[in-house]
Design a protein around this nucleic acid. Structure first.
Lengths: 152, 152
DNA sequence: AGTAATTAAATTGTGTACAATTTAATTAGA
DNA sequence: TCTAATTAAATTGTACACAATTTAATTACT
């Protein structure tokens, strides 16, 4: 085994992760375009379907996205009439994102998307379960070094 | 279990895939910036470190990227002096991408990146192995429906 | 109270990603 | 052989994604 073995594309772990992510998001497109959403917009709506109101910072922490990404996405969702954006009266640095009636109605139209998608992804139930567990384990720890740096 | 259960963010499989992919690519940045590459550029270079020459179409198939993405990436790599782009004399529709001497020298500087990265990702060897297997299984089959549609 | 430090969004600039279209070259078919 | 169909890149337009900076509001400190 030569010293460059780990540089081969086929030995990468991140590469198939990156490709699977992109390819699965691509599979969402025909379903999401029916309700006029992109994948990122869909993620925001999923959060709002669970919590009517949320501030941008908290939303960003849930979705692992910053204001640089979310601000334009939220402006578009507002233009589509699915969310409302307003400053927090108590602390005007905070932006409160609130779902509208039309935004809530969209949930009904979206409810079968997860099942439709699962039929597009070639994976056994067992693999899907293991994948889910492993990925969430990674996510739980991926940015932990920030915490330890506070201790040092 | 209500009819919207599968719409919850925490029940998604694609979302943690998408986040892990992004977060791991972010971990690459400090290492890649030392050799003046982005992650996408690094993927191209990994292919070229294995094959000195490749045409754009084949490169795109390996990386799951199209000419719309690769053309500007290759132009940047050419400006950095790591690749050369030239038309195939036999069939001028084909673009041949060839690694330069400087591009080859970069391999030596990159050889420890995989190990550095693996130390940044909080995952056991067993989970990493299983993840690798599952993701590659998905990739192998993800765009197969194109083939079956040819049969129908 | 008044200034400094901190915080949260928005903005700016760079770099993908990809669908759709265009351009140019090659191949297939009448 | 000449035209139609096909192929491969490049181009165009839209939408993230994120680092870095800016702006505005709040909090901490003297």
């Amino acid at each position: 085994m030569n010293k460059y073995e780990q540089l081969k594309l086929e030995n990468q772990l991140c590469f198939p992760l990156y490709v699977c992510s992109k390819e699965i998001i691509r599979k969402y497109k025909p379903f999401l375009s029916k309700i006029n959403l992109t994948y990122t917009q869909y993620l925001v709506m999923m959060v709002l379907w669970e919590n009517d109101k949320i501030n941008l910072k908290t939303l960003g922490e849930k979705l692992f996205l910053d204001s640089g990404t979310l601000t334009p996405v939220l402006i578009k969702l507002e233009q589509k009439g699915y969310v409302k954006r307003q400053k927090n009266k108590i602390d005007e640095r905070n932006l409160i994102v609130e779902i509208t009636k039309n935004g809530s109605l969209l949930k009904e139209q979206a409810k079968n998307i997860p099942k439709s998608l699962s039929q597009c992804i070639p994976i056994s139930n067992e693999d899907a379960y293991n994948l889910y567990i492993i990925l969430n384990k990674i996510l739980k720890n991926i940015n932990k070094e920030k915490d330890t740096s506070l201790i040092d």
